[in-house]
């Protein structure tokens, strides 16, 4: 399924979007959907892509890992932190507020 002209964002249809450290050098983001329809929208081709994640989080797309888990209606994104947890220039020790850029991803597929 491919969504192309939806004007909504992931945050509009997901039940929960969260972020957290996965060890001091990685951050992981989870999008939980409450039903199959919203999962279908978020998991569709072109919505959560390595290129979009790399652009929003200014990380190397080669390091972006994306998992789709239909059984629990989750899309998961992991990538290395730009600075390690709690170091002098870190702004978010637990990486607990890093979900917001992902929440704002459009459901419309990226145009490539």
């Amino acid at each position: 399924m491919t969504a192309t002209d939806d004007s909504r964002t992931i945050g509009d249809v997901a039940g929960l979007v969260r972020s957290k450290n996965a060890g001091p050098f990685w951050v992981t983001l989870d999008v939980f959907c409450d039903d199959d329809a919203s999962f279908g929208l978020v998991a569709a081709d072109g919505v959560v892509t390595a290129a979009r994640v790399a652009d929003a989080y200014r990380v190397d797309p080669e390091h972006v890992r994306i998992f789709r888990m239909p059984n629990i209606r989750v899309v998961k994104v992991s990538f290395p932190r730009r600075v390690s947890s709690g170091s002098a220039l870190d702004h978010d020790v637990h990486a607990g507020q890093q979900h917001v850029p992902l929440q704002r991803f459009p459901l419309a597929a990226e145009e490539r």
Binding site: T28, R65, F67, I72, V74, S78
Partner: peptide, 16 residues
Amino acid sequence: PTSVAAHMLYENADPF
């Protein structure tokens, strides 16, 4: 089942 399965996501870069 969802609350248990979802815990593999928590603070894990790879859920599998």
